[in-house]
Amino acid sequence: MARSVTTSRRITFTIIAWVIALILFFPILWTIITSFKSEGDAIAFPPVFLNFHWTLDSYREVQERSDYLLHVWNSAAISFGSTLIALLISIPAAWAMAFNPGKRTKDILMWMLSTKMMPAVAVLVPFYLAFKNLGLLDTKLGLIIILTMMNLPIIVWMLYSYFKEIPGEILEAARMDGATLGKEIVYVLAPMAVPGIASTVLLNIILSWNEAFWTLNLSASLAAPLSTFIASYSSPEGLFWAKLSAASTLAIGPILVMGWFSQKQLVRGLTFGAVK
């Protein structure tokens, strides 16, 4: 906006915005600060903000619990695995819909979206029973299958909306020059679509990493990702806030940073292109 704004007004808005932003960010900041405290300082009352003995003990203890890295690995395997498999199924579908749309393409897209509207609880019982019978309870494979299907509609939609922006004439030109379909996709479409595919991957890793319905209900220990592992701190066995904070900081850190880089894609992905 090119309108001149008085400096005093600008400063007032700046102060209000920063105060609100810091209040909203405080729970995260407080978690990070607490993770550097001893358990004693963590429950000090009145709370100590910065003037305490900073220590990495909680991180050390969390790491030393032999199973912590297992849960990190589970989270990574489940979120990356499900995103990649869904991507492999979605790219051809999105290609077909964007460049060779038929009469029913729109209906198919809408129908795919509608599967996202199905509440998870409605199918909890059959999945739980089927997983129990198939020995898939508390396995990474089971969770990867569930999250792949959960992500599929969003991935198809996002890829479709990115592919739509690539002019189809370029693909046609490649075809005229004798490129096969495989070559067309790998050498012509893929390089142009890389930014879109990367954003799609980013958003879906974030969504899978934070998923907390299926992971809580279908995993217990062996395949438990971080969301389930952290939930185990809810048992009232004692106040281990420093350790809870350290584990939480490690669990949300990477995703937080990824999230900051995916703001634009987030809007597009989560509104299915209704707001750009």
């Binding site: 909203l24 960010f25 729970p27 995260i28 934070n210 809580l216 969301s227 389930t228 949300i252 990824m258």
Partner: peptide, 8 residues
């Protein structure tokens, strides 16, 4: 930022 914090 709060949007990226896992629910648990």
């Amino acid at each position: 930022s709060p949007f990226f914090v896992m629910p648990t």
